[in-house]
Design a protein around this nucleic acid. Sequence first.
RNA 1: GGCGGCGUACCCAAGUGGUAAGGGAGCAGUCUGCAAAACUGCCAUUCAGCGGUUCGAACCCGCUCGCCGCCUCCA
Length: 472
Amino acid sequence: MPIRLYNSLTGKKEEFVPKDPANVTMYACGPTVYAMSHIGHARSAVSFDVISRYLRYSGFRLTYARNYTDVDDKIINRANEEDVSCDELAERYIKAFDEDMASLGVLLPDARPRATQTIGRIIALTSALIEKGFAYASGADVFYSVRKKKDYGKLSGKNIDELEAGARVDVNEAKADPLDFALWKGSKPGEPAWNSPWGMGRPGWHIECSAMCMDRLGETIDIHGGGRDLIFPHHENEIAQSEAYTGKTPFARYWLHNGFVNIAKEKMSKSLGNILNIRDALTGHTPEAIRLFLLSSHYRSPIDYTQESLKDAENAVDRLYKTIERVDRECPEANGKEHRDEQWFAPIIEAMDDDFNTAMVIGLLFKEVSLANRLLDEGGRDNAQELSRILSLIKEASGFLGVFDKAPEDYYKLRRAVIGLKISPDEIERLISERNEARKTKDFKRADEIRRGLLEQGVVLEDAPDGTKWSA
RNA sequence: GGCGGCGUACCCAAGUGGUAAGGGAGCAGUCUGCAAAACUGCCAUUCAGCGGUUCGAACCCGCUCGCCGCCUCCA
């Protein structure tokens, strides 16, 4: 079964046929590093992380690049506000972004180019576009002329005349046409600047991605991704300038765009003050819960972040690890045996092949979790074969989902740290013994008192046939 | 105004032509000293509404209503 994916360029789900299956290329737009990254950045990164993992899982040899845009108006403004250099500011937020991604289990892309390290290529591209007649210098600025390429608008479905009528574009006398966009901007004193044929200056917004992309992956790539909002103007402009430069169409064979994360049904925005940083989301929740939350909907759908939806994800992760732990305990012989069964795994592959339908995969996994518990209730050891199959299945899927890949005890350790459990495991064990003494002498009042006390501190007790278990 | 998307149970969410996955919540039962967890059963004759195509539609077409995104920086 081939992979099918939704291509924003054609508006259809298409079979994925890479240019060269032995060397698949993917580029995802990374953050502009001027502030802490938020849950929306996390969604984009997690989506393309899963896609890259799955392409590799499917047998493609993939080169995946994700950039940092580290020169930009917003960075300059912020750096001025804080009275630090642009480099220092960018460096700080690149580091923070990397840390956030690592905690969410996002693997490092093969290449992580920075705009400021690709200036030579940007200048070369800009010069070439002028030579080819697609761009023009105006003072110290260089603009791309959108009307020069007749298929401008093919990604976003816009046409130039309607955009013109929209009149929401800024008026700039230096431009021949209000819709033209800057490839190169002459810099004011104090701004980051590089020497160029047009004087000291810096790149415009869209050109850096074309440059980094070509630099790392070549003139035609297989997959180009990013958030939905980048379709216009960013990706539209990337297509225009790249195709004008190379003369090759298409620049990217498949365009993939992830949906937004809304906060309680509202778009995150500075004016609403509802931007949820990854770090804030990470206090009080395990990274795995956040990742599961993000993967519980299809990557193209909008999702709504609420306290409750996170709690749901948290419960689901707990349920899964609790079940794995139970299998380990009640049927140890199920563990360790690799039991890859194509037949049983087929529905999961089918779901992933269908435009990376992680929500479906998660549904299928939880069906297996229910089955595992039922088998254990019926007498685990008789079902070792079946249980080991389920364990293998979860392990296999966790490889590309990036969740459910820990040992249960590691997960619980992390969870205790996240919720800030004050009481020590030793103290808990001591109280459990005390309670079990009380239970033996039928002093249930005392026993319940201890249980209630622990519950108030976030510790839940379970009296199982083979002893009392606790969890946070 | 232009372009695009969405509307599936109390909540979240798959399913896109063959008769409604999964999770959470809730209710009842098994187990338990009581709980918790797990399991079992119940919980959408129906997929915003109305028409149409079809042997058959949540899935295709048309219209209506509602919500949202992009068109300006944005993941």
